[in-house]
Design a protein around this nucleic acid. Structure first.
Lengths: 241, 241
DNA sequence: GTAAGCAAGCTTACGATGTAAGCATGCTGG
DNA sequence: CCAGCATGCTTACATCGTAAGCTTGCTTAC
């Protein structure tokens, strides 16, 4: 083999991989252009050949996290119930988040939702629709499960919560641009828009979603209060990998 | 009245108030020592007379948010059910979070849980215990409701999630120091410790809490799937104030 | 072979930011 | 009246993201 010119060339992948290492080892706040660069035996500015800027680097980390969850989940089993499938997904997601403790905070504070996250939720939505959910109920379910499936609180869609300046107007545009790879989400948006075209709050009335989730939890707790140990006791075990 | 020497003196309160204004107007990332200072017609370094540093300033903002929720809730009505009380609290908290969109993200990414947040959860816990919850079920309920009552995902207690370096060991200490003003939490910790003293995972096995919440949501969704419009339709309206 | 073109990494520099260290100023109590 | 102190100011530095331009060595057409 060649002498490899003292080192393999830099690449977006190598930059992101090193950034993940730094985040895992020293926390997300240690992920600095300079710190990532020294990890790669390179100067800070060299990273800009492969990554547009720090924000995009962080988006890249989110991308990697989502990919890690996706690959850890594996394919859906043939006759798998929506409930079991989602439970498996959430538990897998949690495993990944435990490996990368900084990830929920990062995902939750990203100013815009990275495209991969939409793809991720498309899969969740597909599971629900396939399980017999109406678009409306599925919409509420996604909001309810929001923090379980990726460990983040950020309001999905319009609100553009965590970030600074409201730039959610192009979130809708981005979503529209991806409509072909997000068939279920596109259909859901269409259905919800149709049902709520006179609703001044818009199709995604997060107050309604909030109350739905809240009542889901309160009702569940009330049931536990009435009948203490009769709880579900599900079976699905997460594959130890 | 006096001439007031060209301006009223600075104070921790004035600093925090201005920081909140900046956060509300320009986003949390605009909350900079220099930016807050100009808002007060003062130099950046002058703030350090009244606030130890930026981290403590941010903790002060959390403190203010919690106080705002507390005061907006008002006193608990005499015969109010735990369920109605919690619902009112969550909806009130949401109103406050809507007024300060940056707050959930800030609370969620604080490296340590500020003392006031413990006090806040003490009140939630008191409501649950008063409603007949066992300490164990109440513990699970708090985790389940975590993101509803203050809009944040951070794992309560031990894990020290969002932040960087794990400094959760002194979180327990801080909690112990406040035991006298946190009677219910102290009792809950004691009860859970007693029940799980041989559990290698410690008293707060967040995996168990996670699965509890997850099943609460999945069961609730399954119920909605079976009987579409028979949902709770609760009464409690949030006082418009 | 060789020179043009270029990809990839480097150097330098600038404007934010948090904050350490010490200075200036004016009020207050003896 | 003045010593002492509280309060705000000035200066300075380390760290951060990144703009602009330079160097170097490979590729490729001739």
């Amino acid at each position: 083999m060649r002498v490899e010119a003292s080192r393999q060339p830099l690449s977006r992948e190598r930059v992101l991989a090193e950034a993940m290492n730094v985040a895992d080892d020293e926390g997300i706040s240690a992920v600095t252009m300079r710190r990532v660069a020294v990890g790669l035996r390179v100067e800070a500015m060299s990273l800009y050949r492969h990554v547009p800027g720090k924000e995009q680097l962080l988006d890249g980390l989110v991308e990697r996290i989502v990919a890690e969850v996706d690959s850890a989940i594996g394919d859906r089993l043939p006759g798998e119930d929506w409930c079991v499938a989602l439970r498996r997904r959430c538990l897998t997601a949690r495993q990944v988040m435990m490996r990368h403790r900084w990830a929920p905070g990062l995902i939750g504070t990203r100013p815009a939702i990275p495209p991969d996250v939409y793809l991720y939720f498309e899969a969740v939505l597909a599971t629900l629709i396939d399980g017999g959910f109406s678009y409306h109920l599925a919409h509420q379910a996604i909001h309810a499960l929001g923090s379980m499936v990726l460990g983040f609180t950020q309001e999905l869609f319009s609100p553009a919560a965590g970030g600074d300046n409201s730039e959610h107007d192009n979130a809708d545009a981005e979503l529209a641009a991806m409509a072909d790879v997000l068939p279920h989400i596109a259909a859901m948006v269409a259905a919800e828009l149709h049902d709520n075209q006179d609703d001044p709050l818009g199709w995604c009335d997060s107050q309604a979603e909030f109350e739905f989730t809240l009542d889901l939890l309160l009702d569940g707790l009330a049931r536990h209060l009435d009948s203490p140990p009769v709880s579900p006791a599900r079976d699905a075990d997460i594959a130890s990998q």
